[in-house]
Write a protein that binds this DNA or RNA. Structure first.
Lengths: 226, 226
DNA sequence: ACAAATTTTTAGGCTCGACTAAATTCTAGT
DNA sequence: ACTAGAATTTAGTCGAGCCTAAAAATTTGT
């Protein structure tokens, strides 16, 4: 396993696998399963096995037959690089090109594969070194380090807790559009007034207004508890 | 041959062929030869034949065996779309990310394949609808139309002609770096003072300074004759 | 603990976009 | 007009990245 500055050449497909393994591996503690990767990537388990072997030979993942897969440190570094690019492009799209936060994902999926260190460093500078993307997710720095913001799901804080809305767990178009429609945005100040025993729905005060949201909504919104 | 708004799906490779055919076809009047394409694309003639057949089936090129190839109107429209994207990204890199004009090409070659109408329209707006890229080449608008600037090669104007330097013919890194080193940039005012009989070199006045340039240099610089 | 169900891997095929080698067609020089 | 040489195409191969079907390993239920 030798380094060569710019790493090996990686295909788009390899990068997408690495990214997916990273996202899956960061949730649970166990190794990532072939099926899980296949499902997320909308491909077949047999294709995943093929690719995992290639990635394993390149030293990007640890792999033992039938035992699932995990990223090596090189693989993790690679994943963080891709995620950094994805999130910086998202910020660019929203800040400079007036995309709304539900429109950025698809384009960023393409842009994240552009290979140029100078490009991404300059972009970072243009955007004034943002720490979070438009959905509140942290942007790794050049070296791959980032600090997860101290945040809690709105559904898991006690009554009377207040804080700023700092992120969404689900960043699907559907959910983001729903938030837009109901005037909920990152940075809004939210206070939990009451939690309904029956269905877990919440009465909240948001930017002065009062409203009720379902438990499903609340369990996809992060707040920065004060 | 049916249109479907966003055209067919085109692979990166197909787009690169179309672009190359466009550039080659715009010079001469004859159809573009297989060998010429192969040379530019650093591939083999047999690979070119393969691809041409595919492009022909998609209605992007006119092709008869052994007779060379030319773009259909759909092919031309496609080519102009790619060139528009390439040149807009070049402007972006120079204007917003402080790239120098010899650094933009490689990255723009990647960015030109990003697929998003909204992206490119917004970029165009961010850049205030530029008409020319950093090398002085015209940027087609949304509909593919652009006006070639009225310009002449510096090597082909008579003594005492003056004008603004508006473009380069050769935009290789080597040439652009040479111009930088000698303080020649787009927008500079140039006047031809004398043309050397012997080797065709020129004595010019540029932004007040006097200097001598070889005929090779002069035949790669465009000026906008007043 | 062991059969059934599930997960994962292997084996073999397919398409795209490249290649080499060989055949074909065109073009130029006499 | 004919032939040598150049350009082009065909035929067959290969790797990446996907697929299906079938085999192998693991996990689960009793």
């Amino acid at each position: 396993m030798y380094f060569c500055g710019n790493m090996y050449f990686m295909t788009r497909s390899e990068e997408n696998y690495i990214k997916t393994i990273f996202h899956l591996g960061n949730k649970g503690t166990r190794d990532v399963s072939t099926n899980a990767i296949a499902e997320i990537m909308e491909t077949k388990p047999s294709s995943v096995t093929d690719m995992i072997k290639r990635l394993s030979e390149k030293g990007l993942v640890n792999y033992k037959r039938y035992q699932g897969v995990s990223l090596t440190s090189l693989g993790t570094k690679t994943a963080l690089g891709i995620i950094r690019k994805h999130r910086l492009w998202e910020v660019f799209l929203v800040e400079k090109l007036d995309f709304s936060w539900d429109e950025v994902h698809e384009v960023a999926e393409q842009l994240e594969h552009i290979k140029s260190d100078k490009l991404i460093d300059s972009l970072d500078r243009l955007l004034a070194y943002p720490k979070f993307d438009p959905h509140g997710d942290p942007i790794p720095d050049k070296n791959g380090s980032f600090k997860e913001r101290d945040r809690k799901l709105l559904s898991e804080v006690p009554v009377n807790t207040a804080g700023l809305c700092v992120g969404v767990k689900d960043s699907s178009t559907t959910f983001l559009k729903f938030l837009d429609k109901n005037g909920i945005a990152l940075g809004n100040r939210i206070k939990v007034l009451e939690i309904e025993e029956f269905d877990g729905s919440l009465n909240i005060e948001i930017e002065g207004r009062k409203m009720q949201i379902s438990n499903v909504i609340a369990s996809n919104l992060y707040i920065n508890v004060e």
